[in-house]
Design a protein around this nucleic acid. Sequence first.
DNA 1: GATGAATGAGCGTTCATTCAT
DNA 2: GATGAATGAACGCTCATTCAT
Lengths: 204, 204, 204, 204
Amino acid sequence: MKKSRPKYMQIIDAAVTVIAENGYHQAQVSRIAREAGVADGTIYLYFKNKEDILISLFEEKMGTFIEKIDSMIAGKETAAEKLLLLIDSHFRMLSDNRGLAVVTQLELRQSNKELRQKINEVLKGYLKVIDHILLEGKQNGEFSETLDIRLARQMIFGTIDETVTTWIMNEHKYDLAALSATIHNLLLNGCGAHAARPSIGKIE
Amino acid sequence: MKKSRPKYMQIIDAAVTVIAENGYHQAQVSRIAREAGVADGTIYLYFKNKEDILISLFEEKMGTFIEKIDSMIAGKETAAEKLLLLIDSHFRMLSDNRGLAVVTQLELRQSNKELRQKINEVLKGYLKVIDHILLEGKQNGEFSETLDIRLARQMIFGTIDETVTTWIMNEHKYDLAALSATIHNLLLNGCGAHAARPSIGKIE
Amino acid sequence: MKKSRPKYMQIIDAAVTVIAENGYHQAQVSRIAREAGVADGTIYLYFKNKEDILISLFEEKMGTFIEKIDSMIAGKETAAEKLLLLIDSHFRMLSDNRGLAVVTQLELRQSNKELRQKINEVLKGYLKVIDHILLEGKQNGEFSETLDIRLARQMIFGTIDETVTTWIMNEHKYDLAALSATIHNLLLNGCGAHAARPSIGKIE
Amino acid sequence: MKKSRPKYMQIIDAAVTVIAENGYHQAQVSRIAREAGVADGTIYLYFKNKEDILISLFEEKMGTFIEKIDSMIAGKETAAEKLLLLIDSHFRMLSDNRGLAVVTQLELRQSNKELRQKINEVLKGYLKVIDHILLEGKQNGEFSETLDIRLARQMIFGTIDETVTTWIMNEHKYDLAALSATIHNLLLNGCGAHAARPSIGKIE
DNA sequence: GATGAATGAGCGTTCATTCAT
DNA sequence: GATGAATGAACGCTCATTCAT
C-alpha cells in the first residue's frame, strides 16, 4: 500500500539523516520534511504521527537486517559459525551505515517509554534468531548442555550492544568489524563451547 | 560546600522518587521541588540547572555504589570471587532499590547526548573496577593470557546491563539476584577461566 | 447552470448529514466529499469554497421553505390565521427534519461573521413574510394600529427562534409542533390583537 | 483566590477587547496576552486553557449583570415594572459596552458545542429571574392566569435577544435603549396584562 | 468533467529559568 | 538563604485548496 510509494522510504531516510546529524530532540517534523523534500503535511499522508515515523524507521531498517541475517545464517552448518556471522554482520551493517548506528544505538533510546517498548517488539525478532542459534548449539553438542538460553542470549546481545555503543561513543575511532572474531571467541567460551576443536583458521 | 547542606540530598532523593513514579518526561523541576518540599527557585541555589540535578543524582548514587564494591572486593582473593561479588552486589543493589533501578536503567537514558556522556564519565569508575579484576585474573593465571581486557569488560558490563534491563522490562517478575551465579559462570567461561577447577560450591 | 447538475444537491445534502452527525467543526470538506460520493476536488467544481457550500445549503433549504410558506399563507384570510400557519409550518418543518434543525439552529451559528451575515441575507426573505402579515393585520384592524412592525417582527422571529433552540438543547424531548397554538396566542396578544373575538376553536 | 489578583480581570478585559475588534477566530491566546500586557504563559497561571478564559469572561460579566438586575428589581412592586427594568437594564448594559455586546451576542456563539453549553448554564440564572417575574405576575393577577411560564420566558428572552442582535447587525445605527418601552409593551400584551390600567405615563 | 495526492500556513500550551521581594 | 509569580521560546498536527493527470 502506502509503503510502496517512494515517499515512504524517502521520509524514513530523511529521518535517519536528520536525527543522526542533529539528535533526537532536534529532529522536528518540519526538518525531516525539508530533508525529504516534501511538505510538512505530506508526512501525515504516510505516517500517523511523529512517533510512527520513528517506529517505522526501526521496523524497516531492523526488519530488513533480521531477514538478511536469517537467510545468510541458513547457509552455515555449526552454531559457532552462525554466531560469528551474526556478530560480524551486525558490526558490518552499522560500520557501513554510521548514521543509522547513531540513531538506533543512541538517539532512539531517548524516546519515551511507549516508543521504546515498540522498538523492543521489533528487537524480539532479533533475539529469536539468537535463541535459535543457542538451541541448535545445545542440541548438537557444541555448547554446554546446561546452558541457560535466556541468560546466554542476554550475554550475547548485551555484549554486542555494549561494544557498538562504546565504539560510537568513541566516535568510530577504531574498526568495529575487526572485533568480530575476538568477541565471537569470548561469547563462545561463555557458552561453554569446546574451545580448541571447532575454531579453525582465522577466527582465533 | 553546598553538597553538605541537607537540601542537596533532599532534592536528589526527590528527583529519584519523582522520576521513578512518573518517568523522565514527567519529572518537571517544579514537581521535584514540591516533592523535596522546597520552592522552585531553591533548586537553583543547589544545582546549576535541571541537567545538573540528574548528573549529581547519578554521581551520588553510583559513586556510593562504586566505593562500596571497591571496599568489599578488597576482601576477596581470586578474580573469580571478585567478579561474583561485583555481579551479585550490582543485582542486589538494584533489587533492593527498584525506584533507583528504573531511573538509572530506563528513565535517565532518555536524556540527551550531553547528559549521557557525563553519565558515562561516572560509569568509567565502575568500568575501571572491572578492568582491575580482569587484569588481576590475567596476571594470576585465572583467565586466558590472551584475554582482550577492553572487550571482556564490554562483555561483562553489557551482559550485566542487559540482564538488569530485561528484568525491569519484565516488571521484576523474577528474582534478579538469583541469576548471579549463572551469569558469573557464563562470564567466567567467556574470560577463559579454567572452568572446572576453581568453581567450588555455590557458584556453579 | 451548475445548480442543475445532480451532484450539486448531492453535496449539499451530504453537508447537512455530516454537520448534523458530527458538528460544524468536524465537517471537513473531505468528509462531505466522501459522504457525497465524490472526490475532494469535485466539490470545487460546484462551489467556490467551503463557505459557499454552507451558504448554498441555507439558501436552498430556507429558500424552499419560504416559498412553501408564502404559497400556503396566500390561502388564508386573516393575519392571525397566517401567523398561526407560519409558526406551525416552521415548527413542523424542523420537527420533521431534525438533522436540518440542528444544522440551522446550532451548528451553522458557529460560522464566522461573514457567513452569518450572508445567512442573514437569506433570512430577510423570511422576515419580509412576517412583515407582510403584520402590515396586513394593522391595516385590516386585527392588530393595534400603533404596532411597531420592526419590533413586532423581532418579537415573533425571536420567540420562534428561541423556542426551537430550547427544544433542540433539550434534545427534542417534547413535541415542538404542539406548542404552535400557545406561542401563537402569546404573539397575537403581543401584537394587540382583540384577543377574545377572532380566536375560534382550536387556537385558544 | 486567583480571582482576586488584578491580572485575572486584566486578561478577561483584554479578551473582550481582542474578540470585539478581531472576531472570535482571530482571538489567539498570544494576542490576548499582548493586549493584557502579560506573557503568554501568564495566561495559564489564571486560566486552565483558552476555553476557560471565554467561560470565565461570560461568567464574570453576565454574573455581575444578573446580580445587579436582581437587586434593582427587588425595589419594584409590580411584575410589569420589574419587566421594564429588566429590559431597560439589559439594553443599557449592552449600549454602554458595545464591545461586550458584540462578544456575547455574536462572537461567543461561534464557539463549539461544549463551550456553548457552559454559557447556557450561566444564562440559566438570567432565565430564572425572568421566571420569577412571570410567576409573580401570574399570582398577583397582573398576567393571564393561563400563562405558560416556560413559553412566555422564551418569548421574552427571544425577543430581547433578537432585538439586540438586530441592533448589532445594523452596526448600532439607532438607540437601543429607546426601544425598551415599546418592547415592554409588546411583551406585556403577550403575557396577557390588563393593558389599559397598569401602564401609566412613560411606559407606553 | 473528475480525481486525490500534495501543499503549507497557523496556534494552544508547557516548563526551565529568573529575579524582585 | 528562600520564595514563587512571571516569563516566552518552541513545535506537532490539521485541513481547505490546488493542479497535474
